[in-house]
Amino acid sequence: MSTDALPKSSPASSITQASAVALIAAVHSAAARIGFTAAVAVTDQGGHLKAFDRADDAPFLTAEVALDKAWTAAAFHTSTHAWNDYLANPKIAPLGGHPRLMAVGGGYPIIDNGRCVGGLGISGGSYEQDQQAAEEALTALGFELPGH
């Protein structure tokens, strides 16, 4: 094989700053309607923080949890609530020891045109409330939900 024909890179899609900020606003709106305050983290496709906001009365630990949920979702292109079942498998369970892996609902990959462009992490409500706010915000901005 000639090295001239060997692709040396591939294009990477990332959520835009404007969309990340809009997503955070949509999450806060959904959370207010649902009845909780939150920390919201948006990462790029590589799990690096793109945008973040924590409501005044959201506990300080929600900041770290939200970021780890977003990182986990971006890293595996999978919603974080799926990890509870995954970690029950003894062949996957060792991943639970990774310091950033967050197997709690509220983290979603941000999917645009079938490609993961980032991660969204929400912390502050119950895991069901975090998931609901994430799904509402992603849908409101036209992003695809995993498995849909």
Rank of each mutant, 00 (worst) to 15 (best):
F60H: 05
Y86W: 14
G105W: 04
A74C: 09
D85W: 13
G96W: 08
P59S: 00
H77G: 15
D57K: 00
A66M: 03
P94M: 01
T80P: 05
W83P: 01
A51E: 09
A74N: 10
M102Q: 04
G46F: 06
G97C: 02
F76A: 10
G106I: 07
P99E: 11
L101A: 04
A63D: 05
F60D: 05
W71C: 03
K69C: 09
Y86R: 11
G47P: 08
A70E: 09
P59C: 00
D85M: 12
P99G: 07
H48G: 07
M102G: 04
G96F: 08
P90M: 09
P94S: 00
P99T: 01
D56L: 13
E64Y: 04
G47N: 02
H77E: 15
T62P: 08
E64G: 10
W83D: 03
I92M: 03
W71R: 10
P59R: 00
A58T: 08
G107S: 01
G107D: 11
A75Y: 13
R54P: 10
A103T: 00
L67D: 15
F60I: 10
L95Q: 05
A70W: 04
G107Y: 11
H77Y: 12
A66W: 11
N84K: 12
D53M: 12
A93F: 09
A70S: 02
P99D: 10
A55G: 14
D85G: 13
K91F: 13
